[in-house]
Design a protein around this nucleic acid. Structure first.
Lengths: 113, 113
DNA sequence: CATTCTTACAACCATATGGTTGTATGTCAA
DNA sequence: TTGACATACAACCATATGGTTGTAAGAATG
């Protein structure tokens, strides 16, 4: 398994591992919000929310588009799906019916000692 | 949404956000491994692997049972499923066909300012 | 133009995380 | 009983994370 893929997977799950970010994601999956509109929902600074948005964006879970002075964020359901598929792979592994088991368990870094 | 539920969700995704832990989970979903057996797969200290196992256990992704002097770890596919279901909820939200949208978006802490 | 809104980003701080080594304890085998 | 093996856990360290405030700059509006 590719190290870059693992990096992206780390970022994906890490982005999901924060309740504020999950809430931002929920909202921005339903409709577009400017960063300041999102910020108004939480009792933390604008900059803090801005950072959360950046983490989600970095993980591919959300994209921003520019409209005048504001940045409109909307969630990317495909990224949510890809996270779900990674979990499905784990489940398949458990079911014992994975063809690519070598691929899944093969290590490049973190190599057996 | 319950704060305790959010805590568990944080722990779930956080546990999944590390490649070593994902690998431990993959392996222990297929079969039981003692902690030291798991440790032998990675070039880091036994204690480091032990901590990763503890993080997975704490997130409910894995359980340990005792056999003599060794602790056998095996993955809990139900926890993997519950993580997948959380992602499914996000997807449903995006599809716009969620009945419990109020429930999902209602905040107790992180209240609108 | 001047002002206000919205974003971007740097600097800083406290705590969490992922790793280490070392020590203690329990279990199996000789 | 002694010794080796497996686990547990504490202490420590460097870096990442989640928050803050402050500053700068682009875009809408008077």
């Amino acid at each position: 398994m590719d190290a870059a893929l693992e990096d992206r997977t780390d970022a994906l799950f890490r982005a999901l591992a924060d309740r504020t970010r999950r809430d931002i994601l929920r909202r921005s999956l339903v409709q577009e919000y400017s960063v300041s509109a999102l910020a108004s929902f939480y009792n933390m600074s604008f900059a803090a929310v801005q950072k959360h948005v950046a983490v989600l964006e970095n993980a591919g879970l959300l994209v921003k588009r520019r409209r005048g002075r504001e940045a409109l964020a909307h969630g990317r359901v495909e990224a949510v799906r890809s996270a779900a598929m990674l979990l499905d792979e784990l489940e398949e592994l458990w079911r014992g019916r994975v063809a690519r088991i070598d691929d899944l368990l093969a290590q490049d870094d973190n190599t057996p000692s």
